[in-house]
Amino acid sequence: MNTYKTYLESRGFSNTTIQSNQNNLLQYINWSEDSQIEAEQSSYNEVLGYVHYLKKKGLQQGSIQASVNSLRHYFNWLIHRGVRKENPVINMNIKGIKRRILHNVLNKQELEKLYNDYK
């Protein structure tokens, strides 16, 4: 697993998701170069600066969270390769995003009945 793409493929991501993650990472790398920050060694505060930059650009919270998720995978890949020891964005979540909450979820017995009664 020497490439980021191979790492994402091994995690079972679709080609569309991999492409999106790579695009988000490329945007972060470009921003970090412009900000004279070494992307591989970014700190929590530096990534937070990037989040503020995305907010100033007018991106929606969902898009910003997608970028943070891409960075989370990137830093996990760096940890896997032994380049880093910790992930600075492991617990970073963007507030204001509506989360989906499942209601009326079937319990185990109801699922088994549904499975067994299916013809």
Results as ranks from 00 to 15, higher is better:
residue 15 N to V: 06
residue 90 I to P: 01
residue 15 N to W: 08
residue 36 Q to C: 13
residue 67 S to A: 13
residue 79 I to R: 05
residue 41 Q to S: 14
residue 30 N to F: 06
residue 99 R to T: 15
residue 4 Y to C: 01
residue 31 W to N: 04
residue 52 H to M: 10
residue 60 Q to W: 06
residue 105 V to L: 13
residue 70 S to N: 05
residue 114 L to C: 06
residue 76 N to H: 09
residue 3 T to C: 02
residue 91 N to Y: 11
residue 62 G to S: 15
residue 93 N to I: 09
residue 89 V to A: 05
residue 24 N to E: 11
residue 90 I to N: 03
residue 48 L to T: 10
residue 77 W to K: 04
residue 108 K to H: 08
residue 8 L to F: 05
residue 61 Q to G: 03
residue 74 Y to M: 01
residue 20 S to Q: 11
residue 93 N to R: 14
residue 19 Q to A: 14
residue 86 E to A: 04
residue 22 Q to N: 10
residue 57 K to G: 06
residue 117 D to Q: 15
residue 117 D to S: 15
residue 90 I to W: 00
residue 82 G to C: 10
residue 95 K to A: 11
residue 77 W to A: 03
residue 110 E to H: 13
residue 97 I to K: 12
residue 86 E to G: 00
residue 80 H to G: 06
residue 88 P to A: 06
residue 86 E to W: 00
residue 17 T to R: 08
residue 15 N to T: 08
residue 9 E to T: 12
residue 91 N to P: 01
residue 112 E to F: 12
residue 64 I to G: 03
residue 29 I to S: 10
residue 74 Y to V: 01
residue 46 E to M: 14
residue 8 L to G: 03
residue 8 L to N: 03
residue 116 N to Q: 12
residue 91 N to A: 14
residue 61 Q to S: 12
residue 93 N to W: 07
residue 87 N to V: 08
residue 60 Q to E: 12
residue 75 F to K: 07
residue 27 Q to L: 09
residue 82 G to F: 10
residue 30 N to T: 11
residue 113 K to F: 00
residue 99 R to Y: 13
